[in-house]
């Protein structure tokens, strides 16, 4: 028995290919990019070491604060939106529609699987004002608010990006939280109701505390993916007007491939990695503490 499942050769054959691919594609390049951060140049012109220059540049670069502010604001707004909308939908599925929710769940989930660029282009035409007025502006006109050029300023474009990403992802968070709510035992809800907890009180004191683990994993997941936002912005505004809707991720991409500065690009990549790791670890630790407190 132990001889069969302890067979070194078999382990090497089974694990080897995956371990090799993982090391070659993920581990080696990750370490390698640390070295890039201390040099400048690109693959065609070659590299030369510059010491800490890239990190000094990072502190002086006026685009970094703008970009960082956009990224963090976007991540916070989208996370709050995704969790609130997802939770509202999940509660609607579980407590109002109950067993009849399958069709609605499936429909609302559909945008999740669509190519982001397709959705981005669709929304850019929906919110367009020139050369043709899109349906969103026609609706605003009809309601008496007046059409507006949504992509003329960063703050207006920001809300179109938020709206589009909420449309795209709310079905996902709804299903995620829905499955979490289903795990709450029926008897617990039943006895809480008998004790007189209904509506808001049932939600606040019974449902939310019991759904906390899945809520926290949803928040971690949401923050982590929104801090790395790229696709939706590229397809919708491409970072503009100016750099007002450029997330760090897109700035890193532009620096590396339009300005061919791999060194500074890697420095930006390290900044993104640091932010994501810090946020995840912080949330993970604080959620652990909360859970043990009960």
């Amino acid at each position: 028995m132990d001889r069969v499942f302890g067979d070194k050769k078999a382990i090497a054959i089974l694990l080897g290919p995956a371990l090799f691919m993982y090391t070659a594609i993920m581990l080696v390049p990750s370490v390698w990019s640390l070295f890039y951060a201390f040099s400048t140049g690109n693959v065609i012109e070659g590299f030369r070491p510059v010491g800490l220059d890239n990190f000094r540049k990072l502190l002086d670069d006026p685009i970094v604060p703008t970009s960082l502010r956009f990224t963090v604001t976007y991540a916070l707004v989208i996370t709050v939106g995704q969790i609130l909308l997802g939770l509202a939908l999940a509660l609607f599925y579980v407590f109002v529609l109950r067993r009849a929710s399958a069709l609605i769940r499936t429909l609302v989930f559909f945008p999740v699987v669509l190519p982001t660029v397709a959705v981005g282009l669709l929304f850019s035409k929906m919110f367009a004002i020139a050369p043709q007025t899109g349906p969103a502006n026609s609706l605003l006109d009809l309601l008496g608010f007046g059409a507006t050029d949504w992509f003329s300023t960063g703050s207006k474009a920001f809300w179109v990006i938020i709206l589009m990403d909420l449309w795209r992802t709310m079905g996902f968070y709804a299903v995620l939280l829905y499955t979490g709510l289903l795990d709450i035992p029926g008897e617990v809800l039943e006895s809480a109701r008998l004790d007189g907890a209904v509506g808001w009180r049932l939600l606040r004191h019974i449902v939310l505390p019991l759904a906390l683990p899945v809520l926290i994993s949803s928040i971690i997941f949401s923050l982590n993916s929104s801090l790395k936002v790229f696709d939706s912005v590229v397809a919708l505004t491409n970072g503009g007007p100016g750099t007002s809707t450029t997330p760090l991720n897109l700035y890193m991409f532009q620096t590396s491939f339009f300005y061919s500065d791999y060194g500074y690009g890697s420095t930006l990549a390290i900044l993104i990695t640091t932010i994501c790791l810090t946020v995840t670890l912080f949330l993970f630790r604080s959620s652990r503490r909360d859970l043990t407190k009960g």
Binding site: P29, S30, V43, Y262, T273, T280
Partner: peptide, 18 residues
């Protein structure tokens, strides 16, 4: 291997391109 889930794509793109 599981720790790799924490590594964002941005970090590996440039060396991979090289």
């Amino acid at each position: 291997i599981v720790g790799g889930m924490m590594l964002p794509l941005q970090l590996i793109l440039l060396p991979l391109f090289t």
